[in-house]
Amino acid sequence: MPRPIHITTPIEPLESRIKRLRIPKARQKELLAIMDEAWARLAVDRIKRPIVSVQRGEKLESASATR
């Protein structure tokens, strides 16, 4: 097995790491808007999923039934 490295160096703040990428502000906005939508969709999916399955009449298995 390769030997792991234990990292103790502090992590640089996100702002300076993003600044170093030198992406024009307008493009940054576009990219963050794309990801805003994606994260929002994910949040909705996470909330909806169990509700949808119950509405469709699917039976939720109890913990004991799955064992």
Partner: peptide, 20 residues
């Protein structure tokens, strides 16, 4: 560079990602 930005943005949004 854009993929790095999106990945860093995900760090900001993810609850259990390592943050400074």
């Amino acid at each position: 560079r854009e993929l790095c930005l999106v990945a860093l943005d995900a760090v900001r949004r993810t609850k259990d990602a390592i943050k400074p």
